[in-house]
Nucleic acid binder design. Structure first.
Lengths: 150, 150
DNA sequence: TATTGTTATACTCTATAACTATA
DNA sequence: TATAGTTATAGAGTATAACAATA
């Protein structure tokens, strides 16, 4: 066994920014474990979700909705096309555009993965009290809009 | 200008895990902008903070406190030693250990950067109501302890 | 045999410049 | 000229195996 006395880190963990990072990492890891059976990254799951509720969306639209640059989204879409989850259909009017649609395989995988993620999300929310849920919602909304200026 | 109508993403943003990620990214970016003048990454700032309040701490201890693997922390410490912010003193009893201490330069930089981060943190917390602050605290604590099982 | 710090390596994410084909 | 998608590339961040020195 290791001689590993814990050091004092309360001055760091008092920071909301620090705790947010830690919580995000932990929650994200659990989510990834949930998605692992489907061989989906969280980004791929997000693309499945958005393509599912926005048939014919363009890569550029997913890019701005997900806050990922187009170059970085291309390889994600590419892999999903190769797995036959997505198809790229040439735009009818503007031939620069490609409409993204879920295949039947993609729809089936989305249905399964989404059910698992929803179970995970329910467990996550059930770990909080009703009043905590109410306030973390508004708090996160405000923090997401936080700007550098003060 | 771009023809970029927003797509429907409420089914995704209803997920607490998704919103946590977005908030973390946004808050982290603002923090990085605050640290940029000092040429500090958030990891380097964390090391400064921990080394400041734990003089003589070992790399292994910082590693477990920060949840970074020892190999990945070595290069961070290395860079800070090169910048004369940290020194590695050979352990007196166990010669495998190296005590990490802030130099005077490191202490001065910590003082400045910490003041800026604290201003940032205050602004962050002031953007929330008192009741939101109270509940996000306990909520984040519970979420950080969330385990995969349900 | 186990542990500290280290080297090497690889893989994911992210960021940016520049290309092509269309408009 | 501007935009959509793409290619190429570089930089973080992270994860793992293995090594030397020491216990």
């Amino acid at each position: 066994m290791s001689t590993d006395p814990e050091i004092e880190s309360s001055n760091l963990s008092q920071f909301l920014g620090f705790r947010l990072t830690r919580v995000k990492i932990r929650v994200h890891k659990v989510l990834l474990a949930r998605l692992a059976p489907y061989e989906l990254s969280s980004m791929e799951f997000s693309v499945l979700m958005l393509a599912g509720s926005n048939p014919g969306a363009y890569l550029r639209q997913l890019s701005s909705a997900l806050d990922v640059s187009p170059p970085n989204l291309v390889s994600v879409v590419e892999r999903m096309v190769r797995r036959n989850l997505l198809v790229r259909l040439p735009g009818t009017q503007d031939r620069r555009l490609q409409e993204l649609h879920l295949t039947e395989t993609g729809q089936a995988l989305l249905k399964q993965a989404k059910a698992d993620v929803e179970r995970f999300e329910n467990a996550l929310e059930q770990s909080l009290t009703a009043v905590e849920r109410r306030h973390i919602d508004s708090a996160l909304r405000k923090l997401a809009a936080f700007q550098l200026d003060g």
